[in-house]
Design a protein around this nucleic acid. Sequence first.
DNA 1: CTATGATAGTCGCATCTGCAACTATCTAAA
DNA 2: TTTAGATAGTTGCAGATGCGACTATCATAG
Lengths: 179, 179
Amino acid sequence: MPKAPSSEVRAPLRGENASQTGPRLDLFKFVPFRLNRLAAEVSAALSSEYQERYGLDIPEWRVLATLGFRNQACSAQYIAHCTRTHKSTISRAVTALMTRQLVERVENKDDRREFTLRMTRKGRALYERLIPRLLRKEREIMLCLSAKEQTDFARLLGKIESSLGLVRTNERADEGECY
Amino acid sequence: MPKAPSSEVRAPLRGENASQTGPRLDLFKFVPFRLNRLAAEVSAALSSEYQERYGLDIPEWRVLATLGFRNQACSAQYIAHCTRTHKSTISRAVTALMTRQLVERVENKDDRREFTLRMTRKGRALYERLIPRLLRKEREIMLCLSAKEQTDFARLLGKIESSLGLVRTNERADEGECY
DNA sequence: CTATGATAGTCGCATCTGCAACTATCTAAA
DNA sequence: TTTAGATAGTTGCAGATGCGACTATCATAG
Protein backbone atom coordinates (compact mmCIF):
# COMPACT_ATOMS: atom_id res chain seq x y z
CA MET A 1 0.00 0.00 0.00
CA PRO A 2 1.55 3.30 -1.01
CA LYS A 3 1.85 5.72 1.80
CA ALA A 4 0.55 9.19 1.18
CA PRO A 5 3.28 11.77 1.42
CA SER A 6 1.41 14.11 3.65
CA SER A 7 -0.12 14.87 7.00
CA GLU A 8 2.98 14.44 9.04
CA VAL A 9 2.33 15.54 12.57
CA ARG A 10 4.96 18.02 13.54
CA ALA A 11 3.05 21.17 14.25
CA PRO A 12 3.20 23.15 17.45
CA LEU A 13 0.47 22.20 19.78
CA ARG A 14 1.14 24.73 22.43
CA GLY A 15 -1.52 27.07 23.60
CA GLU A 16 -5.06 26.58 24.64
CA ASN A 17 -6.40 25.18 21.39
CA ALA A 18 -5.43 21.61 22.14
CA SER A 19 -8.92 20.42 21.24
CA GLN A 20 -7.58 19.08 17.97
CA THR A 21 -8.09 15.35 17.64
CA GLY A 22 -8.42 14.43 13.96
CA PRO A 23 -5.71 14.19 11.32
CA ARG A 24 -3.75 17.27 10.40
CA LEU A 25 -3.09 18.59 6.96
CA ASP A 26 0.12 20.43 6.31
CA LEU A 27 -0.55 22.70 3.39
CA PHE A 28 3.13 22.64 2.49
CA LYS A 29 3.03 18.88 2.06
CA PHE A 30 -0.35 18.77 0.38
CA VAL A 31 0.22 17.98 -3.28
CA PRO A 32 -2.79 19.88 -4.68
CA PHE A 33 -1.69 23.06 -2.94
CA ARG A 34 1.90 22.57 -3.98
CA LEU A 35 0.92 22.05 -7.60
CA ASN A 36 -1.20 25.19 -7.60
CA ARG A 37 1.52 27.29 -6.06
CA LEU A 38 4.23 25.90 -8.29
CA ALA A 39 2.17 26.30 -11.45
CA ALA A 40 1.41 29.90 -10.54
CA GLU A 41 5.06 30.63 -9.85
CA VAL A 42 6.30 29.05 -13.05
CA SER A 43 3.66 30.88 -15.07
CA ALA A 44 4.71 34.14 -13.49
CA ALA A 45 8.31 33.40 -14.39
CA LEU A 46 7.36 32.80 -18.01
CA SER A 47 4.96 35.69 -18.33
CA SER A 48 7.85 38.10 -18.57
CA GLU A 49 8.55 36.52 -21.93
CA TYR A 50 5.21 36.18 -23.61
CA GLN A 51 3.32 38.85 -21.75
CA GLU A 52 5.63 41.75 -21.11
CA ARG A 53 7.66 41.29 -24.24
CA TYR A 54 5.01 40.28 -26.74
CA GLY A 55 1.75 41.27 -25.10
CA LEU A 56 0.30 37.78 -25.13
CA ASP A 57 -1.76 36.32 -22.33
CA ILE A 58 -1.88 32.63 -21.56
CA PRO A 59 -4.87 31.72 -23.78
CA GLU A 60 -3.36 33.60 -26.71
CA TRP A 61 -0.06 31.88 -26.20
CA ARG A 62 -1.80 28.52 -26.14
CA VAL A 63 -3.45 29.22 -29.46
CA LEU A 64 -0.16 30.15 -31.06
CA ALA A 65 1.60 27.19 -29.50
CA THR A 66 -0.97 24.75 -30.83
CA LEU A 67 -0.96 26.23 -34.31
CA GLY A 68 2.81 26.47 -34.33
CA PHE A 69 3.60 23.02 -33.13
CA ARG A 70 1.19 21.20 -35.36
CA ASN A 71 2.28 23.40 -38.19
CA GLN A 72 -1.13 22.82 -39.60
CA ALA A 73 -4.39 24.67 -39.63
CA CYS A 74 -7.02 23.59 -37.14
CA SER A 75 -10.27 24.76 -35.59
CA ALA A 76 -10.79 26.71 -32.40
CA GLN A 77 -12.62 23.79 -30.90
CA TYR A 78 -9.64 21.58 -31.48
CA ILE A 79 -7.39 24.02 -29.63
CA ALA A 80 -9.88 24.21 -26.80
CA HIS A 81 -9.89 20.44 -26.46
CA CYS A 82 -6.15 20.03 -26.69
CA THR A 83 -5.28 22.72 -24.22
CA ARG A 84 -8.24 22.06 -21.94
CA THR A 85 -9.27 25.67 -22.17
CA HIS A 86 -12.89 26.79 -22.35
CA LYS A 87 -14.08 27.47 -25.86
CA SER A 88 -15.18 31.00 -24.97
CA THR A 89 -11.68 31.76 -23.73
CA ILE A 90 -10.20 30.44 -26.95
CA SER A 91 -12.73 32.41 -28.94
CA ARG A 92 -11.64 35.65 -27.28
CA ALA A 93 -7.99 34.80 -27.70
CA VAL A 94 -8.50 34.15 -31.40
CA THR A 95 -10.34 37.44 -31.78
CA ALA A 96 -7.47 39.29 -30.14
CA LEU A 97 -4.90 37.51 -32.27
CA MET A 98 -6.82 38.29 -35.44
CA THR A 99 -7.02 41.94 -34.45
CA ARG A 100 -3.25 41.95 -34.16
CA GLN A 101 -3.04 40.07 -37.46
CA LEU A 102 -1.11 37.23 -35.90
CA VAL A 103 -3.73 34.68 -36.86
CA GLU A 104 -6.18 34.45 -39.71
CA ARG A 105 -9.12 32.22 -40.32
CA VAL A 106 -10.98 30.94 -43.30
CA GLU A 107 -14.39 29.40 -43.57
CA ASN A 108 -14.43 25.67 -43.81
CA LYS A 109 -16.41 24.81 -46.92
CA ASP A 110 -17.19 21.34 -45.67
CA ASP A 111 -18.59 22.55 -42.37
CA ARG A 112 -19.56 26.17 -42.36
CA ARG A 113 -19.96 26.22 -38.60
CA GLU A 114 -16.27 26.11 -38.02
CA PHE A 115 -13.33 28.19 -39.10
CA THR A 116 -9.88 27.00 -39.98
CA LEU A 117 -7.19 28.89 -38.11
CA ARG A 118 -3.72 29.60 -39.35
CA MET A 119 -0.85 31.76 -38.24
CA THR A 120 -0.06 34.65 -40.49
CA ARG A 121 3.49 35.32 -41.54
CA LYS A 122 3.65 37.94 -38.82
CA GLY A 123 2.33 35.47 -36.28
CA ARG A 124 4.81 32.86 -37.38
CA ALA A 125 7.63 35.35 -37.00
CA LEU A 126 6.58 36.20 -33.46
CA TYR A 127 6.26 32.52 -32.67
CA GLU A 128 9.73 31.77 -33.94
CA ARG A 129 11.21 34.51 -31.81
CA LEU A 130 9.25 33.51 -28.72
CA ILE A 131 9.87 29.77 -28.66
CA PRO A 132 13.60 29.82 -27.93
CA ARG A 133 13.05 32.20 -25.05
CA LEU A 134 10.39 30.01 -23.48
CA LEU A 135 12.42 26.85 -23.92
CA ARG A 136 15.36 28.57 -22.30
CA LYS A 137 13.21 29.67 -19.38
CA GLU A 138 11.94 26.15 -18.94
CA ARG A 139 15.48 24.82 -18.97
CA GLU A 140 16.51 27.38 -16.36
CA ILE A 141 13.69 26.35 -14.09
CA MET A 142 14.43 22.67 -14.45
CA LEU A 143 18.14 23.16 -14.02
CA CYS A 144 17.79 22.51 -10.32
CA LEU A 145 17.21 18.87 -11.23
CA SER A 146 19.79 16.53 -12.67
CA ALA A 147 19.21 15.07 -16.11
CA LYS A 148 17.89 11.87 -14.63
CA GLU A 149 15.69 13.73 -12.18
CA GLN A 150 14.25 15.74 -15.03
CA THR A 151 13.25 12.67 -16.99
CA ASP A 152 11.93 11.08 -13.82
CA PHE A 153 9.87 14.15 -13.10
CA ALA A 154 8.47 14.18 -16.62
CA ARG A 155 7.64 10.52 -16.35
CA LEU A 156 5.86 10.91 -13.02
CA LEU A 157 3.93 13.90 -14.31
CA GLY A 158 2.91 11.75 -17.25
CA LYS A 159 1.64 8.98 -15.04
CA ILE A 160 -0.51 11.37 -13.04
CA GLU A 161 -1.77 13.03 -16.20
CA SER A 162 -2.66 9.66 -17.65
CA SER A 163 -4.55 8.54 -14.59
CA LEU A 164 -6.52 11.78 -14.70
CA GLY A 165 -7.24 11.36 -18.39
CA LEU A 166 -5.33 14.46 -19.40
CA VAL A 167 -3.26 13.07 -22.24
CA ARG A 168 -3.99 11.79 -25.68
CA THR A 169 -4.39 8.06 -25.66
CA ASN A 170 -2.45 7.28 -28.81
CA GLU A 171 0.63 8.58 -30.50
CA ARG A 172 -0.91 9.71 -33.72
CA ALA A 173 0.06 13.24 -32.90
CA ASP A 174 0.31 14.08 -36.56
CA GLU A 175 -3.32 13.22 -37.02
CA GLY A 176 -6.26 14.99 -35.55
CA GLU A 177 -6.76 13.28 -32.24
CA CYS A 178 -5.24 14.90 -29.24
CA TYR A 179 -6.89 12.89 -26.52
CA MET B 1 -13.48 16.12 -32.99
CA PRO B 2 -11.19 17.68 -35.56
CA LYS B 3 -11.75 16.49 -39.02
CA ALA B 4 -9.17 15.40 -41.48
CA PRO B 5 -7.99 18.50 -43.28
CA SER B 6 -9.31 18.74 -46.78
CA SER B 7 -6.22 19.68 -48.65
CA GLU B 8 -7.97 21.36 -51.52
CA VAL B 9 -9.66 23.99 -49.43
CA ARG B 10 -6.87 25.72 -47.60
CA ALA B 11 -3.33 26.51 -48.36
CA PRO B 12 -0.85 23.70 -48.47
CA LEU B 13 1.28 23.41 -45.38
CA ARG B 14 4.38 21.61 -46.44
CA GLY B 15 4.97 23.90 -49.32
CA GLU B 16 4.46 27.36 -47.95
CA ASN B 17 4.73 26.73 -44.26
CA ALA B 18 7.93 24.84 -44.58
CA SER B 19 9.53 28.11 -43.56
CA GLN B 20 9.60 26.70 -40.06
CA THR B 21 13.21 26.37 -39.15
CA GLY B 22 13.55 27.14 -35.46
CA PRO B 23 12.90 24.77 -32.61
CA ARG B 24 9.43 23.43 -32.05
CA LEU B 25 7.65 23.45 -28.77
CA ASP B 26 5.33 20.60 -27.97
CA LEU B 27 2.84 21.97 -25.50
CA PHE B 28 2.29 18.48 -24.14
CA LYS B 29 5.94 18.20 -23.23
CA PHE B 30 6.30 21.73 -21.94
CA VAL B 31 6.53 21.60 -18.18
CA PRO B 32 4.92 24.99 -17.43
CA PHE B 33 1.86 24.06 -19.46
CA ARG B 34 1.70 20.62 -17.93
CA LEU B 35 1.89 22.03 -14.43
CA ASN B 36 -0.89 24.49 -15.14
CA ARG B 37 -3.15 21.87 -16.60
CA LEU B 38 -2.43 19.36 -13.88
CA ALA B 39 -2.94 21.87 -11.09
CA ALA B 40 -6.25 22.95 -12.59
CA GLU B 41 -7.40 19.36 -12.93
CA VAL B 42 -6.42 18.41 -9.40
CA SER B 43 -8.09 21.51 -8.02
CA ALA B 44 -11.25 20.65 -9.90
CA ALA B 45 -11.15 17.15 -8.47
CA LEU B 46 -10.88 18.53 -4.94
CA SER B 47 -13.42 21.29 -5.35
CA SER B 48 -16.23 18.79 -5.09
CA GLU B 49 -15.19 18.37 -1.48
CA TYR B 50 -14.58 21.85 -0.17
CA GLN B 51 -16.71 23.76 -2.63
CA GLU B 52 -19.83 21.77 -3.39
CA ARG B 53 -20.05 20.16 -0.01
CA TYR B 54 -18.96 22.97 2.27
CA GLY B 55 -19.30 26.08 0.14
CA LEU B 56 -15.67 27.07 0.50
CA ASP B 57 -13.59 28.52 -2.29
CA ILE B 58 -9.85 28.09 -2.53
CA PRO B 59 -8.80 31.20 -0.59
CA GLU B 60 -11.24 30.37 2.21
CA TRP B 61 -9.94 26.84 2.32
CA ARG B 62 -6.39 28.14 2.55
CA VAL B 63 -7.26 30.31 5.51
CA LEU B 64 -8.84 27.40 7.34
CA ALA B 65 -5.98 25.09 6.44
CA THR B 66 -3.40 27.50 7.80
CA LEU B 67 -5.29 28.16 11.01
CA GLY B 68 -6.04 24.49 11.44
CA PHE B 69 -2.62 23.14 10.85
CA ARG B 70 -0.78 25.62 12.97
CA ASN B 71 -3.49 25.23 15.57
CA GLN B 72 -2.60 28.68 16.66
CA ALA B 73 -3.97 32.11 16.05
CA CYS B 74 -2.20 34.19 13.46
CA SER B 75 -2.68 37.30 11.37
CA ALA B 76 -4.14 37.61 7.91
CA GLN B 77 -0.81 38.86 6.63
CA TYR B 78 0.87 35.72 7.86
CA ILE B 79 -1.62 33.56 5.97
CA ALA B 80 -1.11 35.64 2.85
CA HIS B 81 2.65 35.15 3.07
CA CYS B 82 2.48 31.46 3.80
CA THR B 83 0.04 30.57 1.08
CA ARG B 84 1.39 33.09 -1.41
CA THR B 85 -2.04 34.57 -1.83
CA HIS B 86 -2.66 38.28 -2.26
CA LYS B 87 -3.63 40.04 0.96
CA SER B 88 -6.81 41.43 -0.55
CA THR B 89 -7.90 37.92 -1.48
CA ILE B 90 -7.20 36.74 2.06
CA SER B 91 -9.04 39.74 3.44
CA ARG B 92 -12.17 38.85 1.49
CA ALA B 93 -11.90 35.21 2.45
CA VAL B 94 -11.65 36.13 6.12
CA THR B 95 -14.68 38.40 5.82
CA ALA B 96 -16.68 35.58 4.28
CA LEU B 97 -15.56 33.13 6.94
CA MET B 98 -16.46 35.55 9.71
CA THR B 99 -19.90 36.05 8.21
CA ARG B 100 -20.39 32.31 8.36
CA GLN B 101 -18.97 32.33 11.88
CA LEU B 102 -16.27 29.87 10.99
CA VAL B 103 -13.51 32.25 12.00
CA GLU B 104 -13.28 35.03 14.55
CA ARG B 105 -10.75 37.73 15.10
CA VAL B 106 -9.60 39.77 18.03
CA GLU B 107 -7.63 42.96 18.12
CA ASN B 108 -4.00 42.59 18.84
CA LYS B 109 -3.24 44.78 21.83
CA ASP B 110 0.42 45.01 20.94
CA ASP B 111 -0.22 46.14 17.39
CA ARG B 112 -3.64 47.53 16.77
CA ARG B 113 -3.19 47.44 13.01
CA GLU B 114 -3.48 43.71 12.87
CA PHE B 115 -6.06 41.21 14.02
CA THR B 116 -5.49 37.79 15.44
CA LEU B 117 -7.49 35.12 13.64
CA ARG B 118 -8.84 31.97 15.17
CA MET B 119 -11.22 29.26 14.10
CA THR B 120 -14.48 29.15 16.00
CA ARG B 121 -15.77 25.88 17.36
CA LYS B 122 -18.01 25.68 14.33
CA GLY B 123 -15.09 26.33 12.02
CA ARG B 124 -13.01 23.71 13.76
CA ALA B 125 -15.83 21.19 13.38
CA LEU B 126 -16.05 21.86 9.65
CA TYR B 127 -12.29 21.62 9.36
CA GLU B 128 -12.19 18.29 11.14
CA ARG B 129 -14.83 16.88 8.83
CA LEU B 130 -13.19 18.25 5.71
CA ILE B 131 -9.59 17.18 6.26
CA PRO B 132 -10.08 13.41 6.00
CA ARG B 133 -11.97 13.84 2.76
CA LEU B 134 -9.25 15.96 1.21
CA LEU B 135 -6.49 13.64 2.33
CA ARG B 136 -8.39 10.73 0.86
CA LYS B 137 -8.79 12.57 -2.42
CA GLU B 138 -5.10 13.33 -2.50
CA ARG B 139 -4.30 9.68 -1.86
CA GLU B 140 -6.65 8.63 -4.64
CA ILE B 141 -4.95 10.95 -7.09
CA MET B 142 -1.47 9.83 -6.10
CA LEU B 143 -2.43 6.18 -6.14
CA CYS B 144 -1.27 5.91 -9.74
CA LEU B 145 2.26 6.18 -8.38
CA SER B 146 4.04 3.55 -6.34
CA ALA B 147 5.15 4.40 -2.84
CA LYS B 148 8.66 5.12 -4.02
CA GLU B 149 7.41 7.17 -6.94
CA GLN B 150 5.29 9.22 -4.58
CA THR B 151 8.21 10.09 -2.35
CA ASP B 152 10.34 10.75 -5.40
CA PHE B 153 7.71 13.06 -6.80
CA ALA B 154 7.43 14.93 -3.53
CA ARG B 155 11.19 15.25 -3.36
CA LEU B 156 11.47 16.58 -6.91
CA LEU B 157 8.64 19.03 -6.31
CA GLY B 158 10.52 20.18 -3.25
CA LYS B 159 13.70 20.78 -5.19
CA ILE B 160 11.91 22.90 -7.75
CA GLU B 161 10.07 24.80 -5.04
CA SER B 162 13.33 25.47 -3.25
CA SER B 163 15.07 26.74 -6.32
CA LEU B 164 12.15 29.10 -6.93
CA GLY B 165 12.21 30.28 -3.34
CA LEU B 166 8.76 28.94 -2.55
CA VAL B 167 9.51 27.18 0.72
CA ARG B 168 10.42 28.38 4.13
CA THR B 169 14.12 28.41 4.56
CA ASN B 170 14.27 27.14 8.09
CA GLU B 171 12.33 24.71 10.19
CA ARG B 172 11.21 27.11 12.85
CA ALA B 173 7.65 26.48 11.79
CA ASP B 174 6.45 27.28 15.28
CA GLU B 175 7.77 30.78 14.95
CA GLY B 176 6.52 33.45 12.67
CA GLU B 177 8.63 32.79 9.61
CA CYS B 178 7.07 30.65 6.97
CA TYR B 179 9.51 31.26 4.17
C1' DC C 1 -38.61 16.82 -46.56
C1' DT C 2 -39.07 17.68 -41.67
C1' DA C 3 -37.95 17.39 -37.02
C1' DT C 4 -34.86 16.55 -33.44
C1' DG C 5 -30.56 16.72 -31.51
C1' DA C 6 -25.59 17.72 -31.69
C1' DT C 7 -21.78 20.88 -32.61
C1' DA C 8 -18.86 25.44 -33.67
C1' DG C 9 -18.46 29.72 -32.29
C1' DT C 10 -20.01 34.29 -30.02
C1' DC C 11 -21.55 37.05 -26.38
C1' DG C 12 -23.72 38.78 -21.98
C1' DC C 13 -23.36 38.10 -17.26
C1' DA C 14 -21.46 37.03 -12.92
C1' DT C 15 -17.59 35.97 -10.30
C1' DC C 16 -12.94 36.04 -8.99
C1' DT C 17 -8.75 38.27 -8.13
C1' DG C 18 -4.73 41.35 -8.62
C1' DC C 19 -3.58 46.15 -8.35
C1' DA C 20 -3.42 50.32 -6.22
C1' DA C 21 -5.26 53.79 -3.35
C1' DC C 22 -6.74 54.62 1.20
C1' DT C 23 -7.07 54.59 6.47
C1' DA C 24 -5.15 53.51 10.63
C1' DT C 25 -1.30 52.37 13.14
C1' DC C 26 3.48 51.52 14.32
C1' DT C 27 8.56 52.69 14.12
C1' DA C 28 12.40 55.41 13.84
C1' DA C 29 14.89 59.38 13.18
C1' DA C 30 15.45 64.43 13.38
C1' DT D 1 7.57 65.89 19.85
C1' DT D 2 7.20 65.82 15.10
C1' DT D 3 7.66 63.85 10.82
C1' DA D 4 8.60 60.48 7.38
C1' DG D 5 8.33 55.95 6.07
C1' DA D 6 6.70 51.18 6.71
C1' DT D 7 3.02 47.86 7.61
C1' DA D 8 -1.96 45.57 8.39
C1' DG D 9 -6.04 45.45 6.45
C1' DT D 10 -10.05 47.19 3.38
C1' DT D 11 -12.14 48.50 -0.80
C1' DG D 12 -13.07 50.37 -5.61
C1' DC D 13 -11.90 49.20 -10.06
C1' DA D 14 -10.65 46.71 -14.02
C1' DG D 15 -9.22 42.61 -16.43
C1' DA D 16 -9.76 37.71 -17.01
C1' DT D 17 -12.55 33.71 -17.36
C1' DG D 18 -16.18 30.12 -16.71
C1' DC D 19 -21.06 29.38 -17.52
C1' DG D 20 -24.98 29.37 -20.10
C1' DA D 21 -27.87 31.21 -23.65
C1' DC D 22 -28.00 32.12 -28.36
C1' DT D 23 -27.37 31.67 -33.59
C1' DA D 24 -26.04 29.10 -37.36
C1' DT D 25 -25.02 24.85 -39.23
C1' DC D 26 -24.70 19.87 -39.66
C1' DA D 27 -26.35 14.97 -39.03
C1' DT D 28 -29.72 11.60 -38.50
C1' DA D 29 -34.15 9.46 -37.87
C1' DG D 30 -38.68 9.17 -39.33
